[in-house]
């Protein structure tokens, strides 16, 4: 096999595995920046994956599948926001409850719709789109510019998020709500509204990340298919130091690790797979310990805001 082919395939695999993590991590980024830590990502992604799959099946359109996934996740986000913002329920416990609840709900609904024994039906899914000219670039063309639309969307969301958070007034308010909610409130900004908005918008992105799993990366829904990616996304936010570009780097890095781990195994490496799976978590802890420069979480992260 030619080396350039290997690299092409490798980069393509990296992008594919990084995309669901990137969506979820960007969604979480909005929430964390506003001061909310949502550890229910796993549940949000499952709901997104199921909604995407079922909607695409009924409307016979993958695009509608993703839109529905975003909407339903947004509604779930609204409920989550009511809990953690309005009635100030503990964010961690609510997240855990959502994870348990979603696993049960998606399994039940999926079985009700699709049955237990039938083989998986044909569902409209996203096909690779080759971008003219750019896809002709040697090595990188076929790996980066021949992907599904959702991959491009995820990549485009990175500069958008950066612009939104750092260059717009709403972005400033979101960041302020996560750092100094008291002062922000005094300055006349409604911290509750800002957090509601960040949670709902963020949840929609997380849901799309789930839908990418069932409509882009794969072409089906299976029970518990998120398989820990929600927690990896959580790690990616920190590894990316709460910055969209950093988050992109983290998602690609974890995707790289995944793609590398798989290839190492295929090549017959004898490193136990558990150690390879541990790497993202170890890296994240290392980042927090300042091994690669200091990272600071938003000051008010995880603390409900009380108007006094």
């Amino acid at each position: 096999m030619i080396v350039s082919d290997f690299i092409t395939h490798f980069i393509a695999a990296d992008l594919r595995t990084a995309t669901p993590i990137l969506f979820a991590a960007l969604g979480e980024l909005y929430m964390e920046r506003s001061g909310i830590i949502n550890i229910g990502l796993e549940g949000f992604m499952l709901i997104g994956a199921l909604t995407g799959s079922i909607s695409s099946y009924f409307f016979n359109s993958a695009l509608l599948g993703v839109i529905m996934a975003a909407l339903v996740s947004g509604v779930l986000g609204l409920i989550y926001a009511f809990f953690v913002v309005t009635i100030k329920a503990n964010q961690v416990a609510t997240g855990i409850a959502i994870n348990i609840f979603s696993l049960g709900l998606t399994t039940t609904i999926y079985r009700a719709f699709m049955g237990v024994n039938t083989s998986h039906p044909n569902i409209a899914s996203f096909k690779n789109i080759s971008i003219p000219l750019l896809s002709k670039i040697p090595i990188f063309g076929q790996s980066i510019f021949n992907q599904t639309a959702l991959v491009y969307l995820a990549l485009m969301l990175v500069p958008f998020t950066y612009y939104f958070l750092y260059k717009t007034s709403i972005g400033l308010k979101i960041r302020a709500a996560g750092e100094y909610p008291q002062a922000t409130d005094t300055a006349g900004v409604n911290v509750f509204q800002i957090r509601y908005g960040a949670i709902i918008g963020g949840s929609m992105l997380v849901g799309v990340g789930g839908a990418y799993l069932s409509l882009g990366l794969l072409n089906m829904f299976t029970e518990n298919m998120v398989a820990g990616r929600g927690f990896i996304a959580l790690a990616a936010v920190i590894f990316g130091k709460w910055n969209p570009w950093g988050v992109l780097g983290a998602a690609l890095f974890f995707g790289f690790g995944d793609a590398l781990a798989i290839r190492l195994q295929v090549m017959g490496s004898s490193i136990p797979y558990q150690f390879l799976l541990m790497l993202p978590y170890i890296f994240t802890v290392a980042v927090l310990a300042g091994v690669v420069g200091k990272a600071f979480s938003p000051t008010a992260l995880g603390i409900p805001y009380n108007k006094e």
Binding site: M1, D5, F6, H9, A13, R16, T17, L213, L217, L218, M220, T222, E223, N224, M225, A227, D258, A259, I262, R263, Q265, V266, M267, Y273, Q274, L277
Partner: peptide, 23 residues
Amino acid sequence: TFTGSFYDVAKAKEMAKAMAQKG
């Protein structure tokens, strides 16, 4: 190879793809 999980569909897919590229 072993994926380490009976549920991780995406990983099995990536593994199979990597094998295809290896011939």
